[in-house]
Amino acid sequence: MQDSPFIRSGRRTVEIERDAVTALLPRIDAAFCRACELIMQCKGRTIVTGMGKSGHIAKKIAATLASTGTPAFFVHPGEASHGDLGMITKNDVVIAISNSGTSAEILTLLPLFKRMGIPVISMTGVADSPLAQTADVNLDISITTEACPLGLAPTSSTTATLVMGDALAVALLEARGFTAEDFAFSHPGGALGRKLLLKVEDIMHVGGEVPRVQPSTPLSQALLEMTAKSLGMTSVVNADDELIGVFTDGDLRRCVDAGVDIGKAQMADIMTPNPKTVPRHMLAAEALGLMDEKKITALIVEDDRHHPVGVVHLHDILRAGVV
C-alpha cells in the first residue's frame, strides 16, 4: 500500500501545503499588526469579500471572525456591484481576497471603498498587483507552488489564505479578551451551546439534597446521610454551617482497609479537610475538567461565606449532555 499512487499523491499534497503554511510565519509582521489595528479600530463590521475559491475561503474567514468577537460577514463582490454595496457603511473595514490581486469584480469596488473612506486590507499572492498596491495594507499569501500538479486548482494558495485568516481572528480574539462564555453566546445551539453555556448552578443539587454532617457525627450516622442523599459523599460543616471537610465513598474504603471501627469513629477523625470546591457560576464543562483532574465524581459548591450551597455530580453533567 505504501507504493500506492493515491498515498504518494496525498502525502505530496500535504507536504506542499505544509510548506506553504510554514512560509507564512515571517509574514506575521508589521503589516499583520496594522491589519489587526484597522479591524480593532473599526466601529462597524468587517466585510470579507472574494471571488471563486477565494470567495469560499472569505466566507469561512468571515464566519470565524464573527464567532470570535469580531462582527463580520461575507459580501460577494459581483453582487456588491448590483445593490449589495448598500450593506457596507463608512464605519466598516474590508478584507479583500484575491490570489492574483487582479480580480475585476473586486477592483471595480476599490474606488467606491476609497470614496467612502473605508480601510481596505488585501490578501494577495502578488505584492505589486493592483489590489495590493491600492489597499491600505496587504497581507502576503504568496506560495511557491500549488499542490495541484497542473498548477490550476487553488490548493496551497487557499490553505495559506485560510491560515492567514485564522491568524487574524485569533490575534483579535486575544486582543479583545474574548472568553469561552462570549464564544458560547454566538453558539447557543446543540452540544456546543450546552457545553459552553451551562453553569454548575443550573444542574447542582441544592437545599435538602445537599448531605451535611457535623465533625462529631459518628461514621455510622454519616453513612446513613450519604445513603439518603445518594451522591456518594457528604459535606462536613461546623456550627456556623461553614464547610470544613468532606467524606466520600473513597474515604470509606480507606477506613475499612485501615480497620477503622465504624461504630466509634467520628467525622473529625476521618474526613478530608479543606476539600476542593467550586463557585456556582463556574461552567459545568470546567467542573467536569476539574473532576477528571482530581479523579473525583462530585464537587461541593461553596458560596463566599464558605457555606456549602450545592453539590454537582459527574452524572448530572453527563445527563445534561455537556460531553
Score class of each variant (00 low, 15 high):
residue 316 D to N: 15
residue 276 K to H: 13
residue 211 P to R: 07
residue 275 P to E: 05
residue 115 R to L: 12
residue 84 D to E: 15
residue 185 F to N: 07
residue 85 L to K: 06
residue 132 A to K: 02
residue 120 V to K: 14
residue 265 A to S: 13
residue 122 S to F: 07
residue 86 G to R: 04
residue 99 N to D: 06
residue 196 L to K: 07
residue 32 F to P: 08
residue 241 D to P: 06
residue 320 A to E: 00
residue 214 Q to W: 10
residue 141 I to V: 13
residue 100 S to P: 04
residue 52 G to K: 09
residue 269 D to H: 12
residue 250 G to S: 14
residue 300 I to N: 09
residue 267 M to D: 06
residue 80 A to D: 01
residue 317 I to S: 00
residue 68 T to V: 03
residue 130 P to M: 02
residue 205 H to R: 14
residue 188 P to V: 00
residue 284 A to G: 01
residue 247 F to S: 01
residue 175 A to L: 04
residue 280 R to M: 13
residue 93 V to K: 09
residue 132 A to Y: 01
residue 180 A to R: 12
residue 167 A to G: 11
residue 66 A to Y: 00
residue 159 T to D: 02
residue 96 A to I: 04
residue 136 D to K: 05
residue 94 V to W: 02
residue 296 I to K: 06
residue 202 D to F: 01
residue 297 T to M: 09
residue 237 V to I: 15
residue 257 D to C: 08
residue 151 G to S: 06
residue 131 L to Y: 04
residue 257 D to Y: 08
residue 241 D to N: 15
residue 146 E to K: 10
residue 44 G to P: 09
residue 148 C to D: 15
residue 242 E to T: 14
residue 5 P to S: 12
residue 223 L to F: 04
residue 259 G to H: 07
residue 298 A to M: 09
residue 151 G to M: 04
residue 112 L to D: 06
residue 211 P to I: 06
residue 5 P to L: 13
residue 58 A to R: 05
residue 69 G to W: 01
residue 108 T to R: 13
residue 77 P to A: 05
residue 105 E to I: 02
residue 41 Q to C: 13
residue 296 I to A: 03
residue 166 D to N: 02
residue 50 G to H: 05
residue 87 M to W: 05
